[in-house]
Amino acid sequence: MRCPFCSHAETQVKDSRPTEDNSSIRRRRQCEACGARFTTFERIQLRELTVLKSEGRREPFEREKLERSIAIACRKRPVDGMRIEKLVTGIQRQLETLGEGEIPSTRIGEMVMDALQGLDSVAYIRFASVYKDFTDASDFEGFAGSIAEAARK
C-alpha cells in the first residue's frame, strides 16, 4: 500500500479488525519511510460491475459515488452514518449477486429509492427530486402527495 503522505511503496500493517457491520476490514498502517500513520478499509468485491447510463455510456460502478449521493440526500436528517453505510453495503451486495456484469443506472436508482423510502421520507423525496429530474414545484407536490396517500393506506 502506497503512503498517501510521501508516496513510499512500503507500509506496515499495525492493526487489523473488522468494521462494526463486518462488511470490511479496517487496517491501521504506518509508512516505513516517513513514519506517518493512516487507515485503509478492505472490502470484498464479488464481481466487477459496470453501470449502463441512460444515454448509453458505460462506466465502472463506484461505491463512493453511491455513498455520496445517499449521504447528500440524508444531509441534516437524523440518519446515523452507520445506517447509510449498511444501506450502501446492502445495495452493493444485491448488485453483485444479480449475476449481471452491466446494471442499468435506473435499476440502481430504484434500489436506492426503495431503501430510502424505509429509512427517511425527506431523504427519499430529496433523492427522488434528482433521480426523477423534478423541474418545478408541482413535481414535488405530486410526488409528496403520492407518498402521503400511500402512508394513509
Rank of each mutant, 00 (worst) to 15 (best):
A123N: 04
R83Y: 03
D15N: 14
S129I: 07
R126F: 12
I125N: 01
L98E: 11
S105P: 07
L52D: 03
I125A: 08
R57V: 00
A137K: 11
P4H: 05
Q117R: 08
R2Q: 15
S24Q: 14
K132D: 15
P60Y: 08
S23L: 07
D15Q: 15
I84D: 06
R58T: 00
K53T: 12
R57M: 11
T50W: 14
L87D: 00
V130S: 08
K86I: 06
T135R: 15
R63S: 04
Q94I: 07
V112F: 06
L49M: 14
M111C: 00
Q117S: 04
S146K: 10
K65Q: 03
K153C: 05
F5Y: 10
F134L: 14
Q92R: 14
I84H: 00
E42Q: 14
S105L: 11
V122I: 12
R58Q: 13
C74P: 02
I72D: 14
L98F: 05
K86A: 08
V130C: 11
E64R: 14
I125Y: 01
G99K: 00
D139M: 13
V130A: 06
E67M: 07
G99F: 05
C3H: 01
A36M: 06
I91S: 04
Q117G: 06
S54P: 06
F61P: 04
S54V: 11
E96Y: 00
E55V: 06
R126K: 15
E55C: 06
S24F: 11
V13E: 10
A137W: 11
T97G: 05
I70F: 00
F127Q: 05
V130I: 14
R68Y: 09
A71L: 13
D114M: 09
R63W: 07
E62N: 01
T50L: 15
G109M: 12
E149D: 10
R47H: 02
E85P: 02
R107A: 11
Q94N: 08
V13N: 09
S23W: 04
R63A: 04
E67L: 08
T39H: 12
E10P: 03
I103Q: 05
E32Y: 01
S121E: 15
L46M: 12
G142M: 09
R107N: 08
G101H: 11
K132Q: 15
I103D: 04
A71C: 13
R57S: 11
I125S: 01
M1D: 04
P60M: 13
R43I: 03
E10I: 02
N22S: 12
F38E: 01
F5P: 04
F5K: 13
C34Y: 01
H8I: 03
P18W: 12
V79Q: 02
I70S: 00
P60D: 12
I25L: 13
A137S: 13
M113F: 02
S105W: 03
L49K: 14
A150H: 03
E20S: 10
F140Q: 07
I125K: 07
C3V: 01
Q45L: 10
P18L: 15
A144D: 06
D114T: 03
G145W: 00
T106S: 11
R93D: 09
D21E: 09
Q94F: 10
S105N: 01
T89F: 10
T19V: 12
L66T: 01
V51H: 08
E102L: 13
K76W: 00
V79E: 05
K53F: 13
F41L: 10
K65N: 03
G56E: 06
S146L: 10
